[in-house]
Amino acid sequence: MNTATTTADAPKQRTFMQKVRRMARRQPLGAGSAVFILIMLFVALFAEVVAPQDPLDMNFADQLIGPNLTYLLGTDELGRDIFSRIIYGSRTALQIGFISAFVGATLGLVLGVTSAYLGGWFDLIFQRIMDVFMAFPLIIMALAIVSVFGSGTWNVIIAITIPFIPKCARVVRSSALALRDIPYVDAARASGFSHTRIVLVHMVPNVMAPYLIMVTSFVGQAILLEASLSYLGLGVQEPTAAWGLMLRGGAEQFFESAPWVAIFPGLAITLAVFAFNLFGDALRDALDPKLRSM
């Protein structure tokens, strides 16, 4: 009887679907953006199936054709299908976005927690180095790095990743500072565990909430940065399908006579960045409402 009473009083465990429904009710924008992101992921993964045409195919008889049933979003100056290029462009955007965000945030996580844990001179010097990096706006930093390494997909990933490291390290460090003096960390230290084990096993899992929020917001920023670099001619290069790249050259030249060449890639960038930002906000509210002010 006693047992039965205890079970009845315990909080009800929700299933995954119930949690999803609850989040969708509480965070409709976040849920909507999550659906959009999932669609983007699907489209990027299965671009070969989804895209009606090869994004590289030049149909010279159909240069600068407006949206129609054959070319849903029209064609560019080389007769390439804009819809197919946007679909393949999502692959480029997400590839660069996810890799940069994940690597940048993860390195920032490890460095930020280490800095908080070690403290003292290491923390002081490390944070001043972070200050130097953070003194440059993201795009300026990325531009400087690309001009050193050159353009191309992997160099763009490096250029976007590096500015993310100090941003994440700084946020994570502030959370980790609060953990440093908590008894279980002291206990781990007293048990003779190595610094690496304390940082990775005992501290890092406890700062995952800000880390995940940072990763999500970084993806949006990375997509925007990649588009900016490509627009400036410093990112990925033609004939690769990339949204920023689609905005330069012909899009500028034919904006008046063929506005669809610029409008649709611009819309794709806007929606993708918007979706990741909204999803990041929703995740923040769900995981750690205290971070809302950061």
Partner: peptide, 27 residues
Amino acid sequence: DQPYKIVGVWLIDQWRQIGLKFEQKVQ
């Protein structure tokens, strides 16, 4: 852009027609 990059993209496509793959290095 004019005419280097346009002609470059066109050439890469022409060579793609015979099975050759080129990556453009724009500087």
